[in-house]
Design a protein around this nucleic acid. Structure first.
Lengths: 418, 418
DNA sequence: TTAATTTGTTTGACATTCGAACAAATATAA
DNA sequence: TTATATTTGTTCGAATGTCAAACAAATTAA
């Protein structure tokens, strides 16, 4: 057997034609056998043999819709595609204040979704019960046979030791430190499970089915209660040496002095995230700088970032100023990241992302003004288009990626071959 | 033949046992056949056949020093190692003010080295002649037969379009824009050549033979005339989408207003690199804050960063303050990078790195104070130990890495097999 | 209807890999 | 010293994987 070290260092794991063919079909299918021959350089015979085996194993399907041949004449191609409905993935997106659980197919498409407001700091015991209930509902309502659940993916709002599936001292998740989530889920549902930081998961979701599908190096920035980033490097999630890469919420902002719970002053998160926007709006209301915000404050006794979004829709100048200001600060940090990382795409997501276009405009302006000219050449900055679902999609995609990773696929194909 | 796309996406390139075995021997040799069997999971017979072939081809050698067997009894192992002296690599390290050309073996070890002061902005025509002269000298002096030159690696002080080997609009390299260095060298010396940014090259050098050999994710920071970073991500150089990743010299510093030629204010490079240190030292001298610096100024009419280093050796408090201040600023930027990238190592190199320990202490202090606690857990910050040679080593290592990359090795092994 | 074209399968030859037997080198015990 | 156990490495025949070429199928144009 291959030891893990050699796999990692040398990326080698036995005769791999079958795995390569499967991977092509899964990732860029539907595709004809002829095109696989062209893509791989394998012979027609080899492709024929392996696709036959993959079909028998139920890993791929022959698509009904036939495809015209390359010229005007000739036999039509039969397209092969990944059998994405041959199993299920459970996707869990746990936020600071919300829980979503989805039933997905093997292409991370959402089949059914349950969600509710929860407080993550009410602790793992309570939350895990909620998760179990949702999963049971999804299984029953959709007639899922349990042995067809191939894996579970989960995002949590804090750093995670990915390989072990353990949350690590998450400040907003008291009581969750080193709770063995991976084991708990694996044992309960008898399938592999994968836990990661929610922002990382969202980045994976954008890569799999969002605006980043054709980008190899990009940064997903989540703006919500806090601010964090997910980093995709050469098409793969980059976690960093301790799993906390992308933790940009505590980068300091020029000239800001506000004390952050982390102990430093002027952290991006404390001066620009949702709560900061809400706080400033409240101050503006109190100073009577905005009639709309004042009326909200009087009516509800408090102002949220969402209210500021409503104010912007009404063209409230105070709200616009507050959001612009947040955008500038986030843009300041983003421009530094752009200089350092030279991504081809920045995605803005999270609960505050859609507060109004002033936010992303301010970010763009700041980045394009302050980053190196070469670094911003061809750089795109976009809002997430599946902001609500991308956590679920990403959690499922992460599980799928792991399950069908190089080594596992090779094993699958060749375990069967005897 | 495999098309390039599929190679990149699927990492697949035909029967690879021979290549895998070669790679193991090259990267972690000397190693016995038995250990290769354990590492790869291949059968003894397969390893035997391929090592035999690799020996015949001269790609590997049998080491003379014998290795005891695992238990107390049994036949001794014969160790196999990469035949690193079977060919040569020419390594070129072009700096803003210096040129070094080295003759290296296939393990990027320096056999002979030539260097002189040149000004890169005197243009490619002049410099390329200097390079050619050095190469000729090295070839003649060391009795190198020209067909044994397997490749050329070169670092230049500015961004490079790596795949084409073209410098890109480098501000400090007027006249070098899009000069086809790769082609020129390839055609002249009839071997593959690889051009990259000097900082990237140095990072590769640290990974190959410097302090970073056991680190998978680290940042090399070069402090000299400018400030730049080389990023290693999962053991590989990360170049970014436009090849300008690591361009941290123009990240802005809190509270600094000095105008940078780039158009922005308070850029790290303009307030903390070698020239900034020299400038501040001159001001201090003029203000008569330091006798030593004043005497230097009077003697030479100018002060360089090197002089400041000398002042520090004499415990000059002005010089110490100036260098500490630079360290703080570099540390400020570094701490942001640490939060974002979560590396396990930061290496400080370049001409100014050894100006005195106050520099790295200040950097360390800043990083450990301002970065997230999880991000600095296990983080090491070290000076480069081969500061002078690491550009040459890295240029050679880059060439070697490319020449013996997965695809090329596979080809080599299997071209021979018919 | 036939020929040309394109797609996909089958087949026999060849190359690669494996397990098992064998050979070589070394330490320990008789 | 000799015999035996142990470890390392090679050789050989069988099994497996891959390929090129022949074949079969599906489609268009003449």
């Amino acid at each position: 057997m291959l030891d893990n070290d050699s796999k990692k260092i040398f990326g080698w794991s036995g005769p791999a034609a079958g795995a390569a063919i499967f991977r092509i079909i899964k990732n860029i299918g539907p595709i004809s056998r002829t095109d696989i021959v062209k893509k791989t350089g394998l012979s027609k015979s080899t492709v024929s043999v392996h696709t036959k085996k993959l079909l028998e194993m139920g890993l791929i399907k022959e698509s009904k819709s036939k495809n015209k041949s390359v010229g005007s004449v000739g036999r039509n191609r039969k397209l092969l595609k990944f059998a994405k409905n041959n199993g299920y993935i459970i996707a869990i997106d746990l936020g600071a204040t919300s829980l979503n659980v989805g039933l997905c197919n093997l292409d991370a498409e959402i089949i059914d979704l349950k969600g509710k407001s929860v407080l993550v700091n009410s602790g793992p015991k309570k939350i895990m019960v909620e998760i179990d209930n949702f999963i049971e509902e999804l299984i029953v309502n959709n007639n899922v046979s349990r042995n067809k659940i191939f894996g579970i993916g989960m995002g949590v709002p804090g750093p995670v030791e990915f390989s072990k599936g353990l949350p690590v001292s998450p400040p907003i998740m008291p009581g969750w430190h080193h709770v063995p989530l991976k084991e708990i889920l694996q044992d309960k549902y008898n399938c592999p499970s994968f836990i990661d930081n929610d922002v990382n998961v969202m980045a994976v979701g954008e890569k799999h089915a969002g605006v980043a599908q054709n980008f190899s190096n990009f940064i997903f920035i989540k703006i919500g209660t806090g601010i964090g980033a997910g980093i995709i490097c050469e098409d793969k999630l980059y976690r960093g040496s301790k799993g906390c890469a992308g933790d940009i919420g505590h980068i300091s902002i020029n000239g800001e002095e506000e004390l952050c719970p982390c102990g430093n002053r002027g952290c991006l998160e404390i001066v620009a995230a949702g709560p900061a926007i809400a706080k400033k709006a409240k101050e503006a209301a109190k100073k009577r700088e905005s009639d709309f915000l004042l009326s909200v404050l009087n009516k509800k006794g408090d102002i949220t970032a969402k209210d500021v979004g409503e104010a912007i829709k009404k063209n409230d100048s105070s709200a616009i100023e507050i959001v612009k200001n947040s955008g500038q600060k986030i843009g300041q940090v983003t421009s530094r990241l752009v200089n350092f990382y030279n991504p081809s795409l920045i995605i803005i997501g999270g609960g505050v992302a859609n507060i109004g276009n002033y936010l992303i405009s301010a970010i763009k302006e700041e980045v394009f003004r302050h980053s190196t000219s070469l670094a911003v050449q061809d750089l795109e900055i976009e809002l997430s288009k599946k902001n609500e679902e991308v956590g679920i999609i990403g959690a499922a995609a992460m599980a799928v990626n792991e399950i069908y990773s190089h080594d596992n696929v090779t094993e699958m194909v060749y375990l069967d071959s005897n």
